[in-house]
Amino acid sequence: MMTIISLILLVSLLPHLTFTARVNVGIVNGREAKPHSRPYMVSVQKDKEHICGGFLISDRFVMTAAHCRKNAPVVTVVLGAHDLRKENSVRFTVDSYHQHPIRQSNLFNNDADVFGLQLEKNVQLNNNIKWISIPAEEGDIEAGSVCSIAGWGLLETKGKRSDHLMETNVTVMNNKKCESKWGKEDFSASQMMCVYGDGGSCEGDSGGPLVCGDTAIGVTSFGDPDLCNSPELPEVYTKISAYIPWIKNIIGNVN
């Protein structure tokens, strides 16, 4: 009799157990994005292997994180992808690399972790390839705002990478709270911002955009070196609005 009751209980719990197992996937605890719902997303690659995210901000300019180039002096970018294993995307070579002057003099800290990739030619825009807006002027996003991130990075700390684009929602953290977590040496409120949530970024998601509404607000920069989506150390993003003059200058120089 007890065996029968145990079996009935197990059968009744199976759907819930399956659901729990499936939830723990994604960028970290995320979900698979609807194919091509984020047409600005870029896979930055070394030797045709994904190393970082990026995003298209004009018809010839990709933004990513500066630290992504540390181990990859030469990269290509893939646009219009959802599943990186498929060949229905477009690959571009990079014509020139643009590093912020602050980063050039401070290569080993987190300042100005933003990098511009000028493509070999203008991108042919279509339903799968579109650029995303960036802020028009400097300013902060209100703490508590719900935004989103996406990428092809690891699904969990030291885990497997996703071939499909994953996404999750995150919440913008108060700058003072973030500074108290990271300390003034690692976090600069004038250049950075923090987010938190049930899901978060992991290795391979660096360089991707933090999107609030329909605007790219931040660039995925760094987090806890030992644990993706750490509950103690929030993820840090380079604040794009802090670099608007520099971005406009290099985009304006594209022929």
Rank of each mutant, 00 (worst) to 15 (best):
E87L: 08
T215L: 01
H50Q: 12
C202M: 04
V254G: 13
F92L: 04
V42T: 12
R161W: 06
E232H: 09
I57M: 12
G80Y: 00
P209S: 14
S12G: 08
M166L: 04
D47W: 14
V77R: 09
G139D: 06
S180F: 08
L227G: 14
S105R: 15
L117A: 01
G200K: 02
C147S: 04
L154T: 06
D140Y: 12
K184C: 02
G208L: 02
E232W: 06
W152V: 02
K177M: 05
D224Y: 07
V236G: 06
C202G: 02
E142V: 00
G26R: 12
V211F: 01
A65F: 13
H98V: 04
A72P: 05
C212D: 02
N71C: 03
H100A: 12
F115V: 02
E179W: 01
G183A: 04
L119I: 09
G252S: 04
D186T: 10
N24Y: 06
L84H: 01
I57T: 14
R60F: 05
L17T: 11
D226P: 12
G252R: 07
C212Q: 11
V211T: 05
S221Y: 05
L154V: 14
V28M: 11
G204T: 13
K48C: 04
I250C: 03
A150N: 00
E32L: 07
V94L: 12
T220H: 05
I244K: 05
F108K: 15
Y40V: 09
T93S: 08
K46D: 04
K121P: 08
S180V: 01
I149Q: 10
N169G: 14
K160S: 13
Q118W: 07
L79E: 10
F61P: 02
A150K: 07
V94F: 02
S145Y: 11
S6G: 06
L117C: 07
L17W: 14
E185K: 14
I217S: 10
Q124W: 14
S162N: 00
M41C: 01
L117T: 00
